[in-house]
Simulated scan of single mutants.
Amino acid sequence: MSAFTSARPSRRPNPRMLAACAVAAAGLAITGGGVYAALNATAFNTAPQAASSGTLSLTMASNGTGFSQGISNLAPGDTVNRYISLTQGDTMDGKDITLGVADGTPTLLTTSATKGLHVTVTSCPTAWTPGTGAGTCSGATTVLLASTPLSTLTAAPVSVKSGVNAASSVLNLQISLALPDQTETVTNGVAPAGTIQGLSSALTWTFGETQRTATVTGS
């Protein structure tokens, strides 16, 4: 007998058997799918429901003498008044109002808390009537911002009004700019170091607000 035995030839799969298995598997798949079949139902509104979002807006307008009218030749102790109106948009209430100021050409007028300009904001329930001096209000005035260095407003916006700003409401404001009293001595035509004289600024006044408090309603 030889030391090596010959390996048995491998059997090839029977094609008929493979076909039968495939048919059986397909039958099981169909049967399995049938097990999970179920009835379904849906319901929907036949008339579309309207839904819309509101718009938050705040617009500014001059009242006679506004920010578009420049201020010149200020002397220490002077106060200049300007008048504007802020109108709330007509679809959504706002909340709280802040005021910030940017200076395109910073000088001591807007960077010094002691020498620079100070601002006061006063509201009137009706439109202000500008005058040669302080304007007049046909109602009780409210100081929204007491005298504050303009440098504070250029650093960050400050609050000038808290609470709800009702849609379509108008806020009538008097903006008073004052150059504080201070003493300087000009010697032989030469101003001292750190003088407040001969300076100019380019001011942009920005009022901001937030949306009203979000609500949950059932009607």
Rank of each mutant, 00 (worst) to 15 (best):
T111D: 01
V101A: 04
T55K: 10
T183H: 11
V160D: 02
G133D: 12
V190Y: 02
D90N: 14
V35S: 07
P180S: 04
A134L: 10
G218D: 12
A178G: 09
T204D: 11
A3L: 11
N14A: 01
G116A: 04
T79F: 06
A155D: 09
R8L: 14
S68E: 14
L56M: 07
G89L: 10
D103W: 04
F207L: 07
S112T: 04
P9N: 12
R16P: 00
R8K: 12
N81K: 10
T213A: 15
A37V: 15
S168V: 02
L177K: 02
R12A: 13
A134F: 02
T183E: 10
Q49H: 06
T136A: 12
S10C: 03
A3P: 12
V164A: 13
A29T: 15
T111K: 02
T152N: 15
L74A: 10
S200F: 05
T5S: 13
A22H: 06
S6H: 13
T110R: 03
T107P: 01
L117K: 04
G208R: 03
T183N: 13
R212I: 14
D181K: 12
R212G: 11
Q174H: 00
A50S: 14
Q197I: 05
L153N: 07
G163R: 04
T5C: 07
I71F: 02
L150N: 04
T114N: 12
S53K: 08
L171Y: 01
A24H: 05
T105E: 09
A191R: 05
Q88P: 00
I30V: 15
R16Y: 10
K115C: 02
A75W: 08
N81G: 09
A214S: 11
N188K: 08
A178R: 10
V164R: 11
S62P: 04
G34C: 08
S53A: 13
G64N: 04
L199Y: 05
N165G: 13
P192T: 09
D96S: 13
I71T: 09
L144M: 14
A29C: 14
T107V: 05
A37I: 10
D78S: 05
S162D: 13
T98S: 15
T129N: 12
S200Q: 08
W128P: 01
L199C: 06
